[in-house]
Design a protein around this nucleic acid. Structure first.
Length: 883
RNA sequence: AGGCACGUAGCUCAGGGGGAGAGCACUACCCUGACACGGUAGGGGUCAAGGGUUCAAAUCCCUUCGUGCCUACCA
């Protein structure tokens, strides 16, 4: 053999870097500019620039890479569009932390300088996650990498903002929003995480103004009473009807406030009396509007009580709560305190408790956009897989509320709106206006707020392709083919892309949405830094190799179920990578460069015809599974085929021909082996890009990268039903002999003599043709095959279909043990036979079950009873010997 | 409070109306000239419980129990 021997086990480290560079340098990740192949496009869910690769990314991007590589091999013109998003709050937080460490803050630095610092930071660290995606093997077209703060994407943002504003779908106004006192910004409803917590329900007495007594109000937030402007009761509540037109005195501040009647109040809850704080509670805000109540803000942007909080001014909101309870108690106004459990909102970025605060913000009117987005899924223009997520999507779309898009931070797209100091009106424009659009005044200043990061992410599927310009990419690849993402951003991102895509492009942003599972630890817990149960994908790749890691993720990615990842599992698939490596190693030891496919025609062996037929079948199923996003099915089938069919059976049989003297057959076997190996590599390539490329490049006659090879297609392989049947027979006989060997504890070193008594001469011939294979694989030194052969003395018996297998065990056999073995086997058969016979004796079954089922059961019963009879005969022979 | 999943071998999970499956772990025998990260064979399950539909239920329906997750402004 000319080939240098390759290493005994696969070493991923050098290999991975080498081939990634090769692919990138050879432009294999780029789509063709002009192509008549069908376009296939995935836009990456842009990771945060602040991020580092975690398990969620690893799974998400592995699945995308599998699809892109598969589609590329299947002949599509593939674009995987990569990039990152600017993660407004998160990134600002990171840079602010740096400043704090230097003893300064962004206000001291100033807005412009601060933004420069953020850009600097992003230049330095922003590429981290991108390189980690490379490490994972992702075939993104990096020449097209985008960033949501890029000039082009910023232009798209402005265009969208201005147009939505013109259409009346963006407005500005005073509403209760979620305020994070630590991040100092408004948040969208979605960005608030509700956590159940143990708290208290305080029952507080509000004295009647006329001194005639009091009414009790229950609240979880006593500190907000300072901003109360009414107490509301249900108009149907008879306990309170007499209180019409009376007023109560606000505790502490002793300010009179009205009692109002509103159906919103639940009579069953607490005392049926609800304090109304329009400036600090969304429901109270609504009620306040209906009753024209004053809105009194008592908490400032830092979560500290302000000047309207009277004696509590300057106290933190939690401190104030303690103090006010003490004061109420001292005044005899505290009726009681009950333990109570409620859900309180926290900032999704910093986990600080959210303060609902009245504030002037910018909003997107979502209802009209949402309707179209929901319809697109209802009509099947976009399909969501697995489909049970559709209900979740509809539920959200149907109950959507307006989206607060302004953020009081500096890092982000500054809202393109200018205020006129002369007339106070707002001018919205794509470029800085020279004069006010209303009074033509020149004293304009721009809005200081920036837009929510998700506002720019919502445009991702078309902004990355060049919109608002009409680029060729946009024309070719929009709508994109598939979006692969986790359910955690179904609302944040997917829903908003749907709304914006349909509105601005007139078509959905993607045909398919595939929602994958969450990666959890081996106990099924969510991985989190604070729990300390994170598995770092980079460490895993170092330890087990990227291919093993990717294959594990794919094999575990069953639809609708979370992935519990453990290192043992990954180790198992590393063994698989090694198995492939060694199969290739074996092949290379038996191949040389001169043998190119199709160079000669020789009648092929059963094993050859069988393996090629199986490849055809398997590749069809794998392709279909990938089309259906059944990653686990595809991976599982590849695993079982390569290991248990190609390696366990084909290569073992091939050895006899490769080591034999028949040159023609040797040659034919080499050719088939090469072809089967090449096809296996191609099947595996989407899952395991590195090891397959490494082997491919050493494969005699392989041309170029495996990335450009075409995925095996069933039509290119024989569909030889006869080979499948015959192979099943040969395998069954071999397994039967091995079975006896195993159960009788015969070491492989002991050769045996076997007799196969077949039911017909056809089977006998088929087996005789493969006699050498059977002898070698079953370790039999003598093998008689024929019809009506007698059971030899001192032999063990088993039955495969219509053939009876006797293994001569002269001097080795323990009759008692053999009888046990046969009885056990018969018991199993009896059990199966009983269920079959029961069915067949049921007239309803014969009457109502489909014909092919009845025929199947009948045939099975016959086979089973024949099998039982043969074993029974054997048993009686053994029992005679015993006597 | 609503909604959605899920309870199948010791573990992790496929399957989804017609004979209970895989991987890992386990047991026995083997370093056979690709691979001990390997080979061959084997043990192991009332498919959570109860009821219903059906000729036929692990699979469809209902109830119960258990476990997750998501949504929500009941103070």
């Amino acid at each position: 053999m000319e080939n240098e021997p390759i290493a005994k086990s696969y070493e991923p480290k050098e290999v991975e870097q080498k081939w990634y560079r090769y692919w990138e340098e050879n432009g294999l990740f780029k789509p063709a500019a002009q192509s008549d192949r069908s376009p296939y496009c995935i836009v990456i869910p842009p990771p945060n620039v602040t991020g580092t690769l975690h398990m969620g990314h690893a799974l998400n991007n592995t699945l995308q890479d599998i699809l892109c590589r598969y589609k590329k091999m299947a002949g599509d013109n593939v674009l995987w569009q990569p990039g990152t998003d600017h993660a407004g709050i998160a990134t600002q937080n990171v840079v602010e932390r740096d400043l704090a460490a230097q003893g300064t803050d962004r206000h001291a630095v100033g807005r412009e300088k601060f933004i420069d610092l953020v850009w600097e930071w992003r230049k330095k660290y922003g590429g981290l996650i991108i390189n980690q995606l490379r490490r994972l093997g992702c075939c993104c077209d990096w020449s097209r990498e985008r960033f949501t703060m890029d000039e082009g994407l910023s232009r798209a943002v402005k265009e969208v903002f201005v147009r939505l504003h013109e259409e009346g779908l963006i407005y500005r106004g005073d509403y209760i929003i979620n305020w994070c006192p630590r991040c100092h910004t408004a948040l969208a409803d979605l960005e608030v995480e509700h956590q159940d917590q143990e708290s208290h329900l305080y029952h507080i007495r509000y004295l009647f103004e006329d001194g005639s007594g009091y009414l009790i109000v229950a609240t979880t937030r006593p500190e907000t009473l300072l901003g109360d402007t009414a107490v509301a009761v249900n108009p149907k509540d008879e306990r309170y009807t007499h209180l019409k037109d009376t007023r109560v005195l606000l505790p502490v501040l002793k300010k009179p406030i009205p009692i109002i009647f509103d159906r919103y109040v639940d009579m069953e809850f607490g005392t049926g009396a609800l304090k109304i704080t329009p400036a600090h509670d969304p429901n109270d805000f609504e009620i306040g509007n209906q009753h024209n109540l004053e809105r009194i803000k008592v908490i400032d942007d830092d979560g500290v009580m302000n000047e309207l909080a009277g004696p509590y001014q300057g106290m933190d909101r939690f401190e104030c709560r303690e103090k006010i309870i003490k004061d109420l108690e001292a005044e005899g106004l505290l009726e009681k305190i009950e333990p109570y459990q409620n859900a309180v909102g926290h900032c999704y970025r910093c986990k600080t408790m959210i303060e609902p605060i009245l504030s002037k913000q910018w909003f997107v009117k979502t209802a009209p956009l949402a309707e179209a987005a929901a319809d697109a899924v209802r009509s099947g223009k976009t399909r969501i897989y697995p489909s049970n997520w559709e209900a979740v999507y509809f539920d959200w779309m149907d109950n959507i509320k307006d989206w607060c898009i302004s953020r009081q931070i500096w890092w982000g797209h500054r809202i393109p709106a200018w205020y006129c100091d002369t007339c106070g009106e707002i001018t919205v424009a794509k470029t800085t206006p020279s004069q006010c659009g209303h009074c033509s005044g020149h004293d304009l200043h721009q809005e200081t707020d920036v837009l929510d990061t998700w506002f720019s992410s919502a445009l991702w599927p078309f902004s990355t392709l060049g919109w608002p310009d009409e680029t060729p990419e946009l024309k070719t690849f929009y709508p994109t083919s598939a979006l692969i993402t986790g359910f955690d951003i179904l609302f944040f991102w997917v829903a908003r892309m749907m709304m914006m895509g349909i509105h601005f492009m007139g078509d959905v942003p993607f045909r398919d949405v595939y929602i994958h599972a969450l990666v959890r630890d081996a106990e099924g817990k969510k991985m989190s830094k604070s729990k300390g149960n994170v598995i770092d994908p980079l460490v895993v790749m170092d330890e087990f190799g990227t291919d093993a890691f990717r294959f594990t993720l794919a094999a575990l990615a069953a639809q609708g179920r979370d992935i519990k990842l453990s290192e043992e599992r990954i180790l198992g698939y590393r063994h698989f990578v090694n198995k492939i490596w060694n199969a290739a190693r074996f092949a290379f030891m038996n191949l040389d460069d001169e043998e190119l496919p199709g160079s000669e025609t020789v009648s092929s062996t059963l094993a050859d015809r069988w393996i090629l037929t199986r490849i055809g079948q398997v590749s069809g199923i794998v392709a279909q599974a990938l089309e259906d996003y059944q990653f686990n099915e595809a991976a599982g089938l590849c695993y079982q085929f390569v290991w248990h069919e190609f390696c366990d059976w084909y290569l073992e049989m091939a050895k006899q021909d490769l080591y034999g003297e028949d040159q023609a057959r040797k040659h034919a076997t080499r050719r088939t082996m090469r072809e089967a190996l090449a096809a296996s590599l191609k099947l595996l390539h989407p899952f395991m890009p590195f090891v397959t490329e490494e082997i491919w490049q050493r494969l005699p006659g392989a041309d170029g990268s495996i990335m450009s090879a075409h995925f095996p297609n069933p039509t290119e392989f024989p569909n030889d039903e006869e080979a499948l049947r015959n192979m099943a027979l040969v395998m069954g006989i071999i397994t039967g002999i091995r079975n006896i060997r195993g159960e009788m504890n015969l070491p492989p070193s002991k050769n045996v003599k076997a007799v196969i008594d077949t039911a017909n001469s056809g089977d006998a011939q088929r087996l005789q043709k493969n006699q050498k294979h059977i002898m070698t694989l079953a370790k039999a030194e003598e093998l008689d095959i024929g019809v009506g052969l007698q059971k030899p003395e001192a032999s063990a018996t088993s039955v495969f279909e219509e053939s009876t297998i006797h293994v001569v065990l002269k001097g080795l056999i323990d009759f008692e043990e053999e009888k046990q073995r046969i009885r056990k086997s018969m018991a199993k058969i009896e059990k199966d036979l009983k269920t079959s016979e029961k069915k067949l004796s049921n007239p309803d079954f014969l009457d109502k079950a489909p014909d092919h089922i009845v025929a199947e059961v009948r045939e099975k019963a016959e086979t089973l009873s024949a099998k039982r009879d043969k074993l029974e005969q054997t048993l009686s022979v053994l029992e005679k010997i015993d006597e």
